[in-house]
Amino acid sequence: EWTYIRKDGSRFPVRLSVTALRDEAGKITGFLGIGSDITLAKQAEAALKESEERYRDLFENASDLIQSVTIEGRFVYVNRAWRETLGYSDEEIANLSLFDIIHPDSKSNCENVFRCVARGERVKKCNAEFVTKDGRKISVEGSINCKFVEGKPVATRAIFRDITERLRTEAALRCEQEKSEHLLLNILPEPIAERLKQEPKIIVDDFAEVTVLFADIVGFTELASSMKPIDLLDLLNKIFSIFDQLCEQHSLEKIKTIGDAYMVVGGLPNPQPNHAEAIAQMALDMQAKITQFRNHTGQVFNMRIGINTGPVVAGVIGLKKFSYDLWGDTVNMASRMESHGLPGQIQVTVTTYEKLKEKFLFKERGVIEVKGKGQMTTYFLLGNKN
């Protein structure tokens, strides 16, 4: 390459090709020179170099991890973020293979991805685990493709993003969400909780027939006066925890506890054809558990249980400290059956008796005066017929 000077003194680059001229004897008699103005070529070359430097600077200063690897797995290029994240120097990288930094948990998947891109497939999303120089496992995701020369794969090019902290945060959020879900399901029936999550609003449903049970510890007041508050609460917790297990066992829905009273219902929020039978069986199991508990602890107390069957309205109302509850005459009557009952007995209404008399043993109590209802015939549930 030569630099020529124009008449006006300006300079321009020339690519000069020179050929010797010879006579018949082969003696050089002169030279023939052909020059080409390569100003435009030089400008294009400079622009290309500037562009390459700009892109290299872009790659080198990118926050993502950028790498180029030969088809044999040797590193051709890694950027600054890659080196800083994994902790390797240029000298160490020169002696590394791609599979030296892949965590064993990801090796099979990465080998499969490597084969895919070597066949010409572009992998738009690839997840992997790398191992840093100090032995930490980091999670990355990104895209990868392959460079081909004359139809043959020569190198893969990948851009990854370190998502280790994001995955850790997501896992922590899932854990907290699961705790919240568990807490919500301890307060509300699962179908009701799902409806509230979809659309927070008042939930009110009519149920044509359910069976409601109220249970109350007889002698609780006397018991409370003779025990420390913390010991009393521990006692109640043990008893009600047993009842909670019985609810799950019989697929019933615990509604609430009020002091020493326990309320449970069968037949909602999911329909249950045998709701009356399930409640009756739970009542018998509650009495048996109380007897076992009394014998084991030496505490002197008993239970009254009342049961009624009929229609109710159920739902969640209010904006704060909401709970799932029942309303209606059926609920009131079940409560009356408990409060007008006898210690150690399970008192039921005629309605409940008619639904259960074929499968359970009863004793007619006779006519009693029920507050707000007048005289009513009631029955004591004694056990199963089988």
Score class of each variant (00 low, 15 high):
residue 338 E to Q: 10
residue 356 L to S: 01
residue 344 G to N: 07
residue 334 A to K: 07
residue 267 G to N: 14
residue 354 E to K: 15
residue 320 K to V: 09
residue 372 G to Y: 00
residue 331 V to Y: 04
residue 274 N to A: 14
residue 332 N to R: 06
residue 291 T to L: 13
residue 373 K to F: 15
residue 288 A to I: 12
residue 281 Q to S: 12
residue 288 A to V: 13
residue 294 R to T: 15
residue 339 S to G: 03
residue 335 S to D: 03
residue 324 Y to G: 04
residue 275 H to A: 10
residue 271 P to D: 14
residue 336 R to P: 04
residue 346 I to A: 00
residue 323 S to M: 06
residue 323 S to I: 04
residue 369 E to H: 11
residue 333 M to D: 02
residue 365 R to S: 12
residue 272 Q to N: 15
residue 310 G to M: 08
residue 307 I to R: 05
residue 276 A to M: 13
residue 370 V to F: 02
residue 297 T to L: 03
residue 286 M to Y: 12
residue 330 T to S: 08
residue 274 N to M: 12
residue 362 F to C: 02
residue 324 Y to A: 03
residue 350 V to F: 02
residue 320 K to S: 07
residue 366 G to S: 11
residue 276 A to V: 12
residue 370 V to C: 01
residue 362 F to S: 03
residue 371 K to D: 12
residue 345 Q to Y: 08
residue 332 N to F: 09
residue 318 G to E: 00
residue 271 P to V: 14
residue 269 P to A: 06
residue 364 E to I: 11
residue 324 Y to Q: 05
residue 300 V to G: 00
residue 266 G to F: 14
residue 278 A to S: 15
residue 356 L to R: 02
residue 275 H to K: 14
residue 288 A to H: 13
residue 312 V to S: 06
residue 274 N to V: 13
residue 304 R to H: 07
residue 300 V to C: 05
residue 276 A to K: 13
residue 339 S to W: 03
residue 329 D to G: 04
residue 314 A to G: 08
residue 304 R to E: 05
residue 305 I to Q: 07
residue 276 A to W: 14
residue 337 M to R: 03
residue 347 Q to V: 00
residue 364 E to V: 14
residue 324 Y to N: 04
residue 299 Q to P: 00
residue 367 V to D: 06
residue 302 N to F: 03
residue 342 L to E: 02
residue 269 P to T: 11
residue 325 D to S: 09
residue 343 P to N: 01
residue 328 G to V: 09
residue 320 K to Q: 10
residue 319 L to V: 10
residue 292 Q to W: 08
residue 316 V to S: 04
residue 340 H to R: 01
residue 313 V to A: 07
residue 339 S to F: 04
residue 312 V to Q: 07
residue 295 N to I: 01
residue 309 T to K: 07
residue 353 Y to M: 07
residue 338 E to N: 08
residue 325 D to R: 01
residue 308 N to D: 11
residue 325 D to H: 01
residue 372 G to R: 00
residue 357 K to W: 04
residue 269 P to S: 08
residue 347 Q to R: 00
residue 349 T to C: 03
residue 314 A to M: 08
residue 298 G to N: 02
residue 306 G to L: 09
residue 292 Q to T: 13
residue 276 A to T: 14
residue 302 N to V: 07
residue 307 I to A: 04
residue 296 H to I: 05
residue 355 K to Q: 14
residue 341 G to C: 08
residue 312 V to N: 06
residue 288 A to C: 10
residue 359 K to H: 15
residue 278 A to T: 02
residue 269 P to L: 02
residue 287 Q to Y: 08
residue 361 L to I: 15
residue 352 T to M: 00
residue 318 G to I: 00
residue 345 Q to W: 05
residue 299 Q to N: 05
residue 337 M to S: 02
residue 348 V to D: 03
residue 296 H to D: 13
residue 284 L to I: 03
residue 302 N to Q: 12
residue 282 M to Q: 14
residue 312 V to Y: 08
residue 351 T to H: 09
residue 331 V to L: 05
residue 334 A to Y: 06
residue 300 V to Q: 10
residue 359 K to Y: 10
residue 366 G to E: 09
residue 374 G to Q: 07
residue 370 V to K: 02
residue 283 A to F: 11
residue 294 R to D: 07
